[in-house]
Design a protein around this nucleic acid. Structure first.
Lengths: 371, 371
DNA sequence: AGGGTTGCCGAAACCGGTTTCGAAGCGAAC
DNA sequence: GTTCGCTTCGAAACCGGTTTCGGCAACCCT
C-alpha cells in the first residue's frame, strides 16, 4: 500500500488515508517520540536526524493531526470569533473583509477560525464558555466592543486570551487594535471649519459602543479647539433610516447646520435623502462627512466624503496579536496597535453656499412652497 | 480538590480544570469504557447504570473533549464554510444573517463552524483540502455556487460531504438548498405586465453564477409567456456602480424600457440614480423591481420593490442538511429544499406613466434641456 | 585510566476519549 | 445439576500525537 514516491495511500474504500507519525517512524527507522521531537524543534535531536525526518515528512506529505496534538498540548490551533447578532442588523458590511484578514493571517500560521454567533447577554457567555471548554478556540477576537463589555469580564474571569477590535474603558491588561476614529473626526471638523463652516452637527451611534464615544469625543474636541459650539449632537443613529430621521430633525432646527458629520456611512446616506427632500444640494447647501468607507458611498451622488478603514488589515493584525497572546510570552499591554483612517474626499463637502441663517430662511420658503 | 456539589475544580494556577471521563469513572465506580458506552447509548449497559452515569455527568458538568473524541471517531464535529473573496466584494450583506443561521443550527447539535476564506482557483482547493486533512471540518457548505463549480469537483473527488446554497448544473448526487429565484422573477414580470408594462429590461449579474442564470431564465420565460420580447438583457451587473452604468445604457436606447428588473438590490439602487439623473421618477416613469431584500432598499426613495430572501433560515437549513449528510445515512439527492422568496412591495414599481415611445421623446427633450 | 559531561535517542507513559473482546453473573431450559 | 444464552461490565488496546525519563556512547578533563 505504501508508495515510495509520496503518493497518497488509498484504502479499499477509496478514501485517502493520512500519513501518521507512526508511518514516519517506520520510514525513518526512528521511534514516534523521536520523530515528534525532531519535527517540533527539540534541542536534543541531531541535525542530521532532524533533516532526515523533515525530508521524509515532506516526501510523504505528513500533516500532523491537529486534534491529536490538541489533546496533549491543550491547544486547538484555532482562533475564535463570536459575532453579536442583535436586532436585524446589517451594519457590518465589512464582515467579509474582516474574515478574510483574520483567516489569511491565521492560516499562514497554521491556525483556523471558529465562528459562532450569539445574541448579547447571557447567551453570549454560554457560547464563549462552550467554545473554550470544548477546546474549539484558544482565544478570541472581540469586535464592536462596548465601553464596558461583559464579554471582557467573562474572558478575564475564565483566564482566556483575547484581543479587542476597538478599545474599551478599562484597558488594564488588554490588547487591542483600533482605528484612530477620534483623530479622524477631529481632522474632519478642521477641514470643515477651514471651508468656512460654523454650524456643524454630529450624528453618532449608540453611546454604549466605544467607537461612537471616541469619535464623538474627537468631534467635540475639534469644535472646542475651533472655538465653536456644536449645533447639535444626535445619538443612536446607526442605520439609513436613523440618519434620515436625525437629519430631518437637524434641518428643522431654528439654526440648521451647514455641515453634518456622521459616525457611520449608512446614516450619512440616509442624511442625503433628508437633505434632498428639503430641496437642498448635498455638498453645496449642506456638507456631509462620514466614516467607514463602504462601497455605496463612492457611488452616491455626490460621492460621499468619508474616512476609510482598512478592515482586512485590521483582521489580519488582530489574528497575529491574538496568536501572540496565546503563546503567552508577551505582556498583553505591549500588544496594542492604532491605525489611521484615510480620508476619501468625495463631493459631499465643500464651502457653505450660504450662512446658517440664510439656510434657515431658504428652508422656510421651501416648506411653504411645498404645501 | 474534587468537590461534591459539582463546583468546578480549580488548579493552583487558578485555571479551571475540566471534568474528564476518568473523573466520572472514579465517581461512579465504573471504568472509563463503561462510562463512555453509557453516555453514547450502547445497548449493553443496564438502564440503572446509564441513569447513574448520566446523573453524575450532569452533576459534575462533564463535557466530553471534542478533540479527544475526534481522534478516535474521525469526526471533528465542525462544519466548514469557505468564503470566496474575489475583488473588493461587498455583495454579501447577508453574511451575518447566514452565519447566525448556520451556527445556531450547528450549535443546537453540538457542532461548531470553521470559517476560511480563499480567492477562487487553486488556492480554494488547497484551503478545502487543508481543512479536511487537519480534520477541522467534517463537511462543507458552499455558497454562491457557480454553474460549473470547481469546488464541487474537489470535494467529490476527496469524497467529503457537502451541501450547496444554490444549485449547479450537474445535480447528480448533490444536496442543496435554494430559493426559487426563477419563480420570483417570473411572478415579478407578470406583475409588471399586469400593470401595463410592455418594454421590460433585465439587469443581471455574472453568467457564471447559477443564481443569475436561473433568475434570468425565469425572467425570459415570463416574457415569452406574455408574448413579449425583452427590451434588453445586461449581464455582469453586481454592484451599485454596475447598475448605474447599465441603467444609463438602457435609458439611452432607441426604445427605453418602462420597467427594469434587477437581479440584485444593489444594482437596482444604482439604477435609481441613473433614472433620477435622467430627470425621471422611479416608480412613475420607470418601474424598478429587484431581488435580495437588503435593508437599504426599504429606506430608499421610493422604497424598493424587491423579493426578500430569508437568509438566516437558509443557513440553518443548510447546517441541518449537512449534518445529515455527514451522518451518511440518507441519499444525498433526498436532501434538497427549495424555498420561496417573498415580494416586498415598495413604491418603485407601478403602472407606466407613458409608453416607451413617449418616454423616449421625453428623454430626448431632457437631454436637450440639460445642455 | 577513571570519572563526569554532553549529545542523542529509545522506551514508555500520557492526553481523553472510543471500541473490541471476553468473562462473570444470573436465570431459564433440558 | 449441567448447559446454554443473555445481560452487563471490566480490561485492555487503540487513536495520533507529546513529553518525561533514563541509558548508552562519545567526548572532555584531570
Amino acid at each position: 500500500m505504501q508508495t515510495a514516491n509520496g503518493m497518497t495511500r488509498v484504502r479499499a474504500s477509496g478514501k485517502a488515508v493520512r500519513v501518521t507519525i507512526a508511518d514516519l517512524a517506520r520510514e525513518t527507522g526512528l521511534t514516534k517520540g523521536t520523530v515528534s521531537r525532531a519535527l517540533n524543534g527539540y534541542p536534543d535531536i541531531a541535525q542530521s536526524t532532524r533533516a532526515r525526518v523533515q525530508v521524509a515528512a515532506d516526501r510523504l506529505g505528513y500533516r500532523p493531526n491537529a486534534q491529536a496534538q490538541a489533546i496533549r498540548t491543550g491547544e486547538a490551533k484555532a482562533l475564535g470569533l463570536v459575532l453579536e447578532v442583535r436586532e436585524h442588523d446589517g451594519h457590518s458590511p465589512f464582515l467579509t473583509d474582516f474574515l478574510a484578514g483574520v483567516t489569511s493571517a491565521a492560516g499562514a500560521a497554521g491556525r483556523t477560525l471558529t465562528v459562532a454567533t450569539a445574541p448579547s447577554g447571557e447567551a453570549m457567555r454560554d457560547v464563549l464558555r462552550g467554545l473554550v471548554e470544548d477546546r474549539k478556540a484558544d482565544g478570541f477576537i472581540l469586535q464592536r466592543t462596548l465601553r464596558d463589555d461583559p464579554r471582557i469580564a467573562y474572558l478575564r474571569e475564565m483566564d482566556v486570551p483575547f484581543v479587542l477590535y476597538g478599545r474599551c474603558q478599562d484597558l488594564t491588561g488588554i490588547s487591542y487594535y483600533d482605528i484612530r476614529g477620534g483623530a479622524a473626526m477631529r481632522a474632519g471638523v478642521r477641514r470643515l471649519v477651514e471651508m468656512g463652516h460654523r454650524e456643524i452637527a454630529l450624528v453618532t451611534s449608540g453611546s454604549e459602543y466605544n467607537y461612537a464615544h471616541l469619535r464623538a469625543q474627537g468631534f467635540l474636541t475639534a469644535m472646542a479647539e475651533a472655538g465653536l459650539e456644536p449645533t447639535d449632537v444626535i445619538w443612536d443613529a446607526r442605520s439609513h433610516g436613523d440618519g434620515l430621521r436625525a437629519t430631518r430633525a437637524l434641518l428643522a432646527r431654528d439654526m440648521p447646520p451647514t455641515a453634518i458629520v456622521y459616525v457611520i456611512d449608512q446614516a450619512a446616506l440616509g442624511g442625503y435623502r433628508a437633505i434632498e427632500e428639503a430641496g437642498l444640494r448635498v455638498g453645496h447647501d449642506v456638507s456631509v462627512m462620514a466614516y467607514d468607507g463602504i462601497p455605496e458611498g463612492r457611488h452616491a451622488s455626490p460621492p460621499l466624503t468619508t474616512w476609510r478603514v482598512d478592515t482586512r488589515a485590521a483582521g489580519a493584525a488582530l489574528a497575529r496579536m491574538l496568536m501572540e497572546r496565546i503563546k503567552g510570552t508577551a505582556d498583553p499591554e505591549a500588544l496594542r496597535w492604532l491605525a489611521d483612517a484615510t480620508l476619501v474626499a468625495g463631493g459631499s463637502d465643500g464651502p457653505p453656499a450660504q450662512s446658517a441663517a440664510a439656510l434657515r430662511k431658504r428652508l422656510e420658503i421651501q416648506k411653504g412652497g411645498n404645501r
